Computed example of a mutant assay.
Amino acid sequence: MVIHALVAASLAFSSVPAQTATVNCARVKCLALTFDDGPGAQTSALLKALSKAGAKATFFLVGKRVEERPEVARQIVAKGHAIGNHTYSHAALPAHSDNDILDELKVTQEVIEEATGRRPTMFRPPYGQTDERVLGLAAQTELAEILWTGTTLDWQLRDTKKIKATVLKLAKRDGVILMHDVVPQTVTAMPGILKELKKRGYHLVTVPTLLRGKGPTAGKSYF
């Protein structure tokens, strides 16, 4: 009877999923790496590099690209990364009507939720172009606006050494760095970037982790 009880207890314990360790960014040096415009052809390779380094990131997804690669969007979520809305067609939002902006955001919400089972609570305006009207419409869509503290301009650099040097220059505690997972050189540079950032004592976390439970709040702009 004792043996049976021990076996039963062991089985019960093994059925409980292991808890994911949380990072307290109030106590340790945190940095959020963010990637826009995907999912793309290079995203899966980037996910492997992040997993190998034990790093988490935030991906702002374009709706039409999620439709093209829904399995990659699912992989992002399955690996424990955060996701956000980057509009359906990568539109410069302030130039559009209220209805068009709402369509860009709402359709992308639906596409991402259908692909991943997750409904984003964050969005990033393409090109960083935003205003109070855009922010108000995002609030109607229950989205917080996430900007950045530094951008690599990796789409322009297209050079692994320069991209790495730029990331390391921009890195700072509680920073949010903008990159693109559709830039092959960024993905190629990532293992070296992750190794050096960890060497410098950074904990690489998602944007929600960086916010320390104080967001994201719909209609609010961060960073």
Rank of each mutant, 00 (worst) to 15 (best):
A78M: 09
A78C: 04
K79W: 07
K79T: 00
G80P: 04
G80M: 10
H81E: 03
H81Y: 09
H81G: 03
A82V: 01
G84E: 07
G84D: 09
H86C: 05
Y88Q: 13
S89F: 12
S89L: 11
H90L: 07
A92M: 13
A92C: 08
P94M: 06
P94C: 02
A95M: 12
H96N: 08
D98Y: 08
N99C: 00
I101A: 06
I101Y: 04
I101P: 05
L102E: 10
E104K: 04
L105R: 04
L105T: 05
L105F: 11
V107N: 15
T108I: 06
E110P: 00
E110I: 04
I112G: 01
I112W: 11
E113C: 09
E113S: 15
E113T: 12
E114K: 15
E114P: 00
G117V: 10
M122T: 01
R124N: 03
R124A: 10
P126L: 08
G128D: 10
T130E: 12
T130G: 03
T130C: 03
T130Q: 11
D131G: 01
E132L: 14
E132N: 13
R133P: 02
R133C: 03
V134Y: 01
L135G: 04
L135I: 14
G136D: 06
L137K: 02
L137M: 02
L137C: 04
L137R: 03
A138E: 12
A139D: 09
A139C: 10
A139W: 13
Q140W: 02
T141D: 13
T141N: 15
T141F: 02
E142S: 14
E145P: 02
L147K: 02
L147E: 05
W148G: 04
W148C: 06
W148M: 07
T149V: 03
G150I: 11
G150C: 09
L153K: 14
D154M: 12
W155A: 13
W155I: 06
Q156N: 13
L157N: 10
L157Q: 13
R158M: 12
R158I: 09
D159L: 08
D159T: 02
D159C: 08
K161S: 14
K161Y: 12
K162T: 04
K162E: 15
K162C: 02
I163R: 11
I163D: 06
K164F: 02
K164G: 11
A165K: 14
A165H: 07
K169P: 02
L170T: 10
A171D: 08
K172H: 15
K172G: 09
R173T: 14
R173I: 07
D174M: 11
G175W: 09
G175A: 13
V176Q: 13
V176H: 10
V176Y: 10
V176F: 12
I177H: 08
I177S: 09
L178R: 05
L178E: 13
H180T: 00
H180V: 01
D181P: 00
V182P: 05
V182D: 05
V183M: 04
V183Y: 01
P184D: 07
P184M: 06
T186P: 07
T186I: 08
V187H: 05
V187K: 08
V187T: 08
V187G: 05
T188K: 14
M190F: 05
M190I: 01
P191C: 00
G192E: 13
L194W: 02
L194P: 01
K195P: 00
E196D: 11
E196V: 07
